[in-house]
């Protein structure tokens, strides 16, 4: 790992200030993507600005259907949050399968979505839940937040503070893990927001990163059943292809996982 300077931010504006002052800074919370990358000498930030100690940053609040999850909330705290479990169990379920128990104790939702790894789970949930990403500068709709593999619309000194969303009527996430890394090779989050508003977020499979399967959403709005998406094409041309699976395999997995999620969301 290259040398770096670590500081803890007092609040979001302090974090932004520190970032502006840094030559090539990075925010860090759990660090479970950033530190492995730094260890491989693939990243060399001059400064690490730790936002996990900012007051309230790890809080989760649930008020009726309105959910707010602080950016520094760990996967474990999302997975085990009893109020969240009542209104949106599918997100708890998703969080409970990110990485392994030790990873879930450190990795955070903010880190996951800011990094936008094409195989990360949270992005699928964010677009399916119609979440809003709250930063120190603005509120960004999830659909506009994720702009491509490892790309988001975040500005350099922009810190994610929280994500908010309204819990759907029902939802479910089905993931097919990469046999080696256990990241998603295809993960599909289906959320039924009522009034024919169905959203399907797909992660892991596409070369463009997370996307909404609009054709499935349409079909499900008419008939919310696994069979309803039989006719929906998953374009192989958009899919990733690597040693773990061809594009055709991933396209198949998207369909199979979508069906499983639909069945589970019931």
């Amino acid at each position: 790992m290259y040398d770096t300077t670590y500081t803890r931010a007092k609040d979001a504006s302090d974090a932004a200030k520190k970032m502006r002052a840094a030559e090539d800074g990075q925010f860090i919370a759990g660090g479970h993507t950033l530190l492995p990358t730094m260890k491989q000498r693939l990243a060399a930030p001059s400064d690490l600005i730790d936002i996990s100690h900012i007051k309230g940053m790890a809080d989760i609040s649930v008020s009726r259907k309105d959910v707010t999850i602080g950016a520094a909330a760990t996967h474990a705290s999302v997975a085990n949050h009893s109020k969240l479990m009542k209104v949106c169990p599918s997100l708890c379920e998703l969080a409970s399968h990110i990485g392994d128990p030790a990873v879930r104790n450190r990795g955070t939702i903010g880190g996951s979505i800011a990094n936008n790894d094409p195989a990360a789970d949270y992005p699928a949930a964010m677009v399916a839940l119609g979440a809003t990403i709250v930063t120190n500068k603005r509120k960004i709709r999830a659909d506009r937040f994720f702009t491509g593999m490892f790309e988001t619309s975040l500005k350099e000194d922009e810190v994610i503070k929280a994500v908010t969303f309204k819990a759907p009527k029902s939802g479910a996430y089905a993931k097919f893990p990469n046999p080696a890394s256990r990241y998603a090779m295809a993960g599909v989050y289906v959320a039924d927001h009522g009034k024919k508003d169905i959203r399907v977020g797909v992660t892991g499979a596409s070369s463009g990163g997370v996307y909404r399967a609009k054709n499935m959403e349409k079909a499900l709005a008419k008939d919310f059943s696994a069979d309803a998406i039989d006719g929906c094409k998953v374009d192989e041309g958009d899919m990733l292809s690597d040693i773990h699976g061809s594009a055709a395999y991933r396209a198949n997995l998207v369909k199979v996982m979508a069906k499983r999620a639909i069945a589970a969301a019931g």
């Binding site: 670590y6 860090i28 660090g31 479970h32 530190l35 492995p36 690490l48 730790d50 990873v103 450190r106």
Partner: peptide
């Protein structure tokens, strides 16, 4: 936690 993925300062 995985102590290989946490800085001592953290």
């Amino acid at each position: 936690v995985k102590s290989c993925t946490v800085l001592a300062v953290q």
